[in-house]
Design a protein around this nucleic acid. Structure first.
Lengths: 96, 96
DNA sequence: TATTGTTTGGACTAATTCATCAAAAATACA
DNA sequence: TGTATTTTTGATGAATTAGTCCAAACAATA
């Protein structure tokens, strides 16, 4: 299971950035970012725009990774997750 | 936007059950269930099997309602939620 | 209206989660 | 090896969230 933290770490190391730099952009302590990357803490959705810019990935890509990790970690063990996601999709297609 | 709490209250009132009964099955205080029904507290997924039995609905139905409410309340304002849900579906189809 | 049962609100406590900070550990490299 | 930089760890306290309990508010009905 690929965590969002691993995703962030991979991308950061690809760019050769230290935690310090990315944490500064997010305005959080490096230790917190370290913990996020190792899944001891969770990233918030408010961090996504800054992470996208700093890690030079598309907003869409990072948001998808975030959503996947969020849902699977909280709901991954439910029996009817698939149906639930399908129904949720129907609901959001209906509105908007 | 229909909340999970409203869903529970509707179903409970259809059956004419008092909070007291359902709360007893869940082994929580009536005031907590009251707050869950009015969205001042959140239900946990551990409550779902008991709620299904007590409210006489299918596990699948109540789980879908729970998942919808959970995702929309936490992620409903993200720009690429639709893509995220589709990707999550792909992921869970792949495994299992 | 009086009584009984149901629901809600709020004060208090407990448990969980989170941020800050400094020092230790690990890594890079002259 | 020695030094500088990066990363991790853990202690502490703040903040958020959850649970208990009881009294007030509300509803139904004799």
């Amino acid at each position: 299971m690929n965590s969002f933290g691993e995703y962030l770490r991979n991308r950061r190391e690809q760019l050769g950035l230290p935690l310090r730099k990315v944490a500064a952009e997010l305005d959080i302590d490096t230790s917190i970012l370290s913990k996020i990357e190792r899944s001891e803490r969770v990233a918030t959705k408010e961090m996504l725009p800054t992470l996208a810019k700093t890690l030079e990935v598309q907003d869409k890509e990072i948001e998808i990774e975030f959503i996947k990790a969020f849902i699977l970690s909280d709901l991954g063990d439910l029996n009817f997750l698939k149906s639930g996601l399908e129904e949720t999709l129907n609901t959001i297609k209906g509105r908007k």
